[in-house]
Write a protein that binds this DNA or RNA. Sequence first.
DNA 1: TCTGGGGTCCTAGGACCC
DNA 2: TCTGGGGTCCTAGGACCC
Length: 419
Amino acid sequence: MEASPSGNRIILHIDVNSAFLSWEAVYRLQHGSPIDLREIPSVVGGDEESRHGIVLAKSIPAKKYDIHTGEVLWQARSKCPQLVVLPPDYSLYIQCSNALMDLLSEYSPLIERYSVDECFLDVTQSLRGRDPFEYAQKISRRVKKELGFTVNIGVSTNKLLAKMASEFEKPDKVHTLYPQEVPKKMWPLSVKELFMVGRRTAPRLYRLNIFSIGQLAHTDPHFLTAHFKSFGKVLWQYAHGFDDSPVNPYGSEAKGIGNSTTTPFDVDNEKEALLYVLSLVETASARLRQARLLARVVSVSIRKTDLSFFSHQRRLLTPTDNTESLYKVAQSLFQELWDGDPLRHFGVAFSSLCNDQFYQTSLFDEARLVRKKALDSSIDAIRLHFGSTSVVRGSFIHSGIPPLTGGVREDFPGMRSLL
DNA sequence: TCTGGGGTCCTAGGACCC
DNA sequence: TCTGGGGTCCTAGGACCC
């Protein structure tokens, strides 16, 4: 293994243009639809009836109507009455995502899947003297030809700059953002365009008279740490384009597994609320077992009708993956958390995970635990073979509440908020 | 007319220990 | 009659990413 002549890495960031929407468009074209959704104002959006009605992805024509991802659908429609709204089809998106990752892995084994529609590729060793920009263009053309959708590719010497570069002009574009190009290409941008500057940090920076990424880069880092603590240093480094995080092909181990849901109607009684908590524990604990992990921390979260958010968590004496044990903790957490106000959202999450090979139990309750474990495995196996609704707890029958809430999906590495 | 669901990381404050 | 200081662990909340 030899380093590139300059000692620099070459990193690509590949980002599918309007991923969910492009994938829907390609699928429909392949199935005989005369319309390319990418060419008309269209969005993929959740179901409004059940209060999931937000924009998940938008076409470029929809963007011209000032429609944003995350916006509520009725608002998007008021901006564009002829807007076409499609329901999401996650299994299709996973297939498209996998196809893309398979194709890209041919260009380097150092591929890190950052989300369902984004990845980093370290091509330092695979370039063999070729020009990185042309190499990226070649990859991009092949994706378009073989998979039917377009990507943006950012080219640079680290992940941060590659990611910033892929955000430049869209769609179907390759951009470079090498360190020497930072003053010209990145510093003029608004500070809100910088990775990690979100809806809360941007206004705080404006109040400090910092409006462009260049101004942020030229701010005394001590001044930034005084205002933002350790995050101030991150902001300053990112504004300069400094980042030495590696492309990690295996992703890091999961730190937490959780499921949450917004309910179709406000929940105002404990019985119904606990059924939602149970249905989330069922799916989240099945994911835990599937990943062969045990949890030491259980947390329960709720959102009230005014969208205020609360959570309680508890550390267990012994890690477990047992549905019943986890539910008991979740139940008590919910009871100490809830003050009786109507709720619109529930969440259950497990963290402080450890490998299930070291499952240790006291002799006292070993027999009980073995039985519980056997029950979980049988139920998991039956659900796997006969469908997720083949075994349902009696308490859910006629309750109007789905017995399993939240997906037991193929595991994607979680999104890192830092690179 | 209220905004999904999956994550990661950081921080403040309190408990507790020596 | 007055309670210092350092360290660790835990919890709740808040920021960010897609």
